[in-house]
Nucleic acid binder design. Sequence first.
DNA 1: ACAAATATAATAGTATTACTATCATACTTT
DNA 2: AAAGTATGATAGTAATACTATTATATTTGT
Lengths: 243, 243
Amino acid sequence: MIVILLYLCSINGMIMEKLLKSVKININDKIYVKDPESSDLGRRIIEHSIVMIHDLGFEAFTFKKLGLQIGSNESSVYRYFENKHKLLLYLTSWYWGWLEYQLVFATNSIPKPEDKLASAIRILTRATEVDASFSHINEVLLNKIVINEYSKSYLTKEVDQENKEGYFIIYKRLVNRIREMIQDVNSSYPYPASLASSILEGGLHQYFLMDHFSSMTDCNEKVPPAEFFVDLVFKTLKKDYNG
Amino acid sequence: MIVILLYLCSINGMIMEKLLKSVKININDKIYVKDPESSDLGRRIIEHSIVMIHDLGFEAFTFKKLGLQIGSNESSVYRYFENKHKLLLYLTSWYWGWLEYQLVFATNSIPKPEDKLASAIRILTRATEVDASFSHINEVLLNKIVINEYSKSYLTKEVDQENKEGYFIIYKRLVNRIREMIQDVNSSYPYPASLASSILEGGLHQYFLMDHFSSMTDCNEKVPPAEFFVDLVFKTLKKDYNG
DNA sequence: ACAAATATAATAGTATTACTATCATACTTT
DNA sequence: AAAGTATGATAGTAATACTATTATATTTGT
């Protein structure tokens, strides 16, 4: 499916939105017991878990509370996900997959490596806006969940095992895409992977600081994190960029 | 106490070690119920909680298991800390306070802003080495705990309340010190706070990637994260640094 | 040296979490 | 109409994250 999309280059927002709606984001099927996209109950689990994790925080969120909220049952939720950790992996994988589509869409047609990288940084570090591409998934809330909870999905004792099973593959692919773009701008820069991972991880962190520790960031409503990172990356790569 | 230390500039490692031993790191007393430094049991709680959180991970660590390990009782541990979240805040505050002393010691006597900043970055992003300054605290394990668990101490629903109560003050002061050093090197750089917070947070992250996601970093045994960050910061500040 | 105060240990108990298991029912497909 | 599948309801378990109470040991003041 991604192959088809790669050929569709200069399309406008409305068309992109429709295309995104028709695309199913491919998630490692070991993450779920039963594909939540395969049933109405599954989609309601996804829809309401996003709202509830955002409202309660991941720690206070439970399958029992979710079951109650969607007029269903704790045991029914367990038929879709082994536990809430796996559900978080599902939601964050979906988010990174969705961002990856946006990245590929928006940057594939850009010929100049500098323009492409700048555009990529802006897409990856911008705040998610309301667009409602996927009816049952609120991407704005999901973005906030990723900011507040993503680290918890890999800061575990099981990370190596879960990495082996491919649970973080979409995120790693995304970092790799940025790494390649960095190398296309400056092939002799010695830390392209570290810089790429810093953009993604640091982007989330700067948003968290804006919300809770404003003294530790210069970013705010008027100066978004994207500007900090574009400036940082292009100065680091010693290529001036005026965009 | 820090005032005295500021005057002690060019002293060697042995003396510094002895001084560090005599220094008590000052931690917000709202974090604990009873100061763990005030009793033998308290120090054993700190000592063994570091080992156990490192071994089990924060999620699987409980006060019951800790009590068992130190030949004491769950209920006795609760007399020192309300819960394990507060204990984590205590341990990480201690770590950042300890790092701050090292930073102040090592950089206070350096006159040239560029040298001072480079030295600061190296201290803040280096791997902790065995030095056993504090008898009951294993700083090497504590450093690993900070890498793996620090985010969990602030990625909570209570972060604003706890921030108000001053639980993150040492970390914020540390970020502020780096921010000032950045400004001393280049006063017109527009993102000194964001860059400072990125160094500390990104430093931890690069170590995590080295351990678990090596494809997302260029750092390794031979190229430590410190080199990536020194390079990044000085290129960004457009000041060449040869050190 | 003795009483009082304090710290710790032992035990029990509660509500919640994170599940697993079983059975009933409803809906769907052939 | 029978069989299969999805969901719902209920019950049960072990562990967690505490709180409360009482007993005992240690320290401290006079």
